[in-house]
Amino acid sequence: MRAVVARRLDGPEAVELIETGVPEPAAGQVRIKVAAAAVNPVDLAVSNGMLVEFGLTAPRPQFGLGWDVAGTVDATGPGTQLQEGERVIGVADLLAQTLKTHAEYVVLNADAVARAPRTVELDHAATLGLNGLTALQAVKALAGQTVLVTGAAGGVGGYAVELAKHFGKTVIASAAASDEDLVRRLGADHFVDRNEDLAAAVRRYAPAGVDAVVDAAVVGIAAQEAVRNGGHHIHPQGGTRPPHLRGITVEQLFVNANTEELNELVALVDANVISTRVAETYPLEDAATAYKRLAEGGVRGRLVLLP
């Protein structure tokens, strides 16, 4: 089969398409014939060596690329509930795998897989898992009523806006001025231009500061300054997290792939509560082009590889 990997770890130029054997599922695993696989910022972080630099994984000769997948179950190991031929989504959240979802086939633990939404095509379903789980786990961790979401037009931020509204929060969203209409359609109660002084702008709507921030854009201290004393700061990325200033709890969130919450997201897609967004699709052999496009920035929705 064909698979996309990184060996040199020097950014999009490190992305290679190789020929390799089709992996076999062990007990508790399923093999998925990949129909679509989103490209996420974490894939760039793997390809440029940032995750090694952060100490999140050890160096190795080859890193598999791709976290999100949508496709059909092709084979199962003993002890799994899914059946061959079922449409599924999954998340490959293990960092140190030599083969991952940017491939024609991928093997995942069954507890990181769920049946795909019925109401969207598989290219759209492939954008749900990683970003949706990150946003869902962030929003579930929050206390309080008012929430600031930075990067609200992005993959994680967009889902965080929709999910926070679903859970009854008042949402102040920060993004580029050109994204205001999009962010308001996602459900934001208030919009703040990311080029403004964030804390001052947020206090127009929450004079004492927001109860919490989901810092999807990883703004850091500038986002934390918009949070009230004793509030909550979700930092959804590796590397150094902001300090606990003014009694604010800073939680560094690493996604946990699990069937239960994937099922929750799928139900919300099928109920039209949250939306999937595909920016562009690329054939698998053009993976390096997709990585370069993501590195340029300004993508709204996800770039998706089609084997």
Results as ranks from 00 to 15, higher is better:
residue 1 M to L: 11
residue 3 A to C: 07
residue 7 R to N: 14
residue 7 R to F: 05
residue 9 L to P: 11
residue 12 P to Q: 08
residue 15 V to K: 08
residue 20 T to V: 12
residue 21 G to E: 15
residue 21 G to C: 14
residue 24 E to G: 14
residue 24 E to Y: 00
residue 25 P to H: 03
residue 26 A to C: 14
residue 31 R to S: 00
residue 34 V to E: 03
residue 36 A to M: 06
residue 50 M to R: 12
residue 51 L to G: 09
residue 55 G to Y: 14
residue 65 L to P: 13
residue 68 D to Y: 01
residue 78 P to Y: 07
residue 78 P to G: 11
residue 81 Q to G: 14
residue 82 L to T: 03
residue 87 R to A: 11
residue 88 V to W: 04
residue 89 I to R: 00
residue 92 A to C: 08
residue 92 A to P: 10
residue 94 L to K: 14
residue 96 A to I: 05
residue 98 T to H: 10
residue 101 T to V: 03
residue 104 E to D: 05
residue 105 Y to T: 02
residue 106 V to P: 03
residue 107 V to D: 02
residue 108 L to R: 04
residue 109 N to Y: 08
residue 110 A to C: 00
residue 111 D to Q: 10
residue 111 D to T: 13
residue 112 A to I: 06
residue 113 V to K: 01
residue 113 V to Y: 02
residue 113 V to M: 08
residue 113 V to H: 04
residue 114 A to L: 01
residue 118 R to C: 04
residue 119 T to L: 02
residue 123 D to K: 12
residue 125 A to V: 13
residue 126 A to T: 05
residue 126 A to G: 01
residue 126 A to V: 08
residue 129 G to H: 11
residue 133 L to K: 02
residue 135 A to N: 04
residue 136 L to G: 00
residue 136 L to P: 02
residue 137 Q to E: 11
residue 140 K to H: 13
residue 141 A to W: 09
residue 142 L to A: 02
residue 143 A to E: 15
residue 143 A to D: 15
residue 145 Q to V: 07
residue 145 Q to H: 08
residue 145 Q to T: 11
residue 147 V to L: 00
residue 149 V to I: 10
residue 151 G to W: 01
residue 152 A to Q: 04
residue 156 V to T: 01
residue 156 V to K: 00
residue 156 V to E: 05
residue 158 G to R: 03
residue 158 G to A: 07
residue 161 V to A: 00
residue 164 A to S: 03
residue 165 K to R: 12
residue 166 H to F: 10
residue 168 G to R: 04
residue 176 A to C: 07
residue 177 A to C: 08
residue 178 S to N: 11
residue 182 L to A: 07
residue 183 V to W: 13
residue 186 L to H: 09
residue 187 G to N: 09
residue 191 F to C: 06
residue 191 F to P: 07
residue 191 F to N: 05
residue 197 D to T: 09
residue 202 V to L: 06
residue 203 R to N: 01
residue 204 R to S: 05
residue 205 Y to W: 03
residue 207 P to W: 08
residue 211 D to P: 03
residue 211 D to G: 03
residue 212 A to P: 02
residue 212 A to Q: 01
residue 213 V to Y: 05
residue 213 V to W: 10
residue 214 V to C: 10
residue 215 D to P: 11
residue 216 A to S: 12
residue 217 A to C: 11
residue 218 V to L: 13
residue 219 V to C: 04
residue 222 A to M: 06
residue 224 Q to K: 10
residue 225 E to A: 15
residue 233 H to Y: 13
residue 235 H to W: 15
residue 235 H to G: 12
residue 237 Q to L: 15
residue 239 G to Q: 03
residue 240 T to G: 07
residue 240 T to E: 15
residue 240 T to V: 11
residue 240 T to R: 13
residue 243 P to Y: 11
residue 250 V to T: 10
residue 252 Q to I: 04
residue 252 Q to V: 05
residue 254 F to A: 13
residue 256 N to G: 13
residue 259 T to C: 00
residue 262 L to D: 01
residue 264 E to G: 14
residue 264 E to P: 12
residue 267 A to E: 13
residue 268 L to D: 08
residue 270 D to S: 06
residue 278 V to C: 09
residue 280 E to C: 09
residue 284 L to N: 10
residue 290 A to N: 00
residue 291 Y to C: 10
residue 293 R to A: 09
residue 295 A to S: 12
residue 297 G to K: 13
residue 298 G to H: 01
residue 302 R to A: 11
residue 305 L to W: 12
